[in-house]
């Protein structure tokens, strides 16, 4: 099986290690990963600010880059949600592009969604002996409907102590440009989120979207907290290395 990696501009530039972890996991699962270089960004920063034409300019790079892909997999429920929920409408003015947008949506998956629902993998053979709490990102859960998949993967991790996050489904306050434009409101939101993370006494916060994790992590760091913030791919990959030898080789 071959997938095209949709890296997202945020992971590309700020968190490349998330991309690396993802690629290595897929690789170990026997999936061939290609990286179409022409991609830039799904256009969400512009789209959510009301700049549809500007969003299209950037979104088109994805239509082209992934035209021939069988599957497109990304480390973000939000960027995947953007493609699923808004692309057809965004390109509604051009029948050809609208068709391409629809086709792209049909084959694009968020990482945990791809693992669980397409590959049928629920246990990657990871061991992660830490106290962990999981923040479900709003777009992944609500726009894309990915709710159980990340938890399914996390629950299968050996020795993990998974603690429920109070008020888990409340938004962390990221919201893209909202975080800058409405900085004080956003800060109030993330401050509450961080207080709940701290209540759990977890040493690791895990999620499926680096936007939210950048926000929560930025607040944790401002509060000089030692909670480690990880994308689910990072946690699983680290866990696979810890768990190596204690499992059968996984192939599909």
């Amino acid at each position: 099986m071959k997938i095209s990696l949709f890296i997202t501009c945020m992971v590309d530039n700020l968190y490349p290690q998330v991309g690396v972890a993802m690629v290595k996991i897929l690789d170990q699962l026997g999936v061939e990963v290609v990286f179409p270089e022409g991609q830039t960004c799904c256009g969400q920063p512009a789209f959510n600010s009301g700049y549809a034409a500007e969003a299209r300019a950037s979104a088109k790079t994805l239509l082209e880059a992934f035209a021939d892909a069988d599957y497109v997999v990304s480390p973000s429920g939000s960027c995947t949600g953007m493609i699923h929920h808004y692309y057809e409408d965004l390109f509604a003015g051009d029948a050809q592009l609208a068709r391409e947008a629809k086709a792209l949506a049909a084959k694009t998956y968020e990482f945990s969604q791809f693992l669980v629902n397409v590959l049928g993998v629920t246990d990657v053979g990871a061991r992660f002996p830490y106290r962990v709490t999981y923040h479900p990102s709003c777009h992944g859960a609500r726009l894309l409907g990915v709710k159980d998949e990340p938890l399914t993967l996390l629950r299968a991790v050996k020795d993990i102590e998974l603690i429920d996050l109070p008020y888990a489904t409340d938004c962390c306050g990221f919201g893209g440009t909202f975080a800058v434009k409405m900085g004080d409101i956003s800060t109030a939101m993330v401050t509450e989120k961080v207080s709940h993370v701290r209540e759990t006494e977890a040493t690791v916060l895990v999620g499926t979207d680096m936007g939210c994790l950048m926000n929560i992590g930025g607040r944790l760091s401002r509060e000089h907290s030692s909670v480690r913030v990880m994308h689910i791919a990072q946690l699983l990959y680290e866990g696979m290395q810890l768990g190596a030898g204690s499992r059968e080789a996984i192939t599909i």
Binding site: I7, V11, D12, N13, L14, Y15, P16, Q17, G19, V20, V23, F35, E37, A179, V180, K181, M182, G183, D184, S186, T187, V190, T191, M214, N215, G217, G218, R219, S221, R222
Partner: peptide, 26 residues
Amino acid sequence: PLRGWTAGRNAPTLAKQSFRDMWSSL
């Protein structure tokens, strides 16, 4: 424009090497 963000939280830095820069060696 950073102020809205940094007033309440730290911002990450751009990675020394982007993912696409790493891709060929990866």
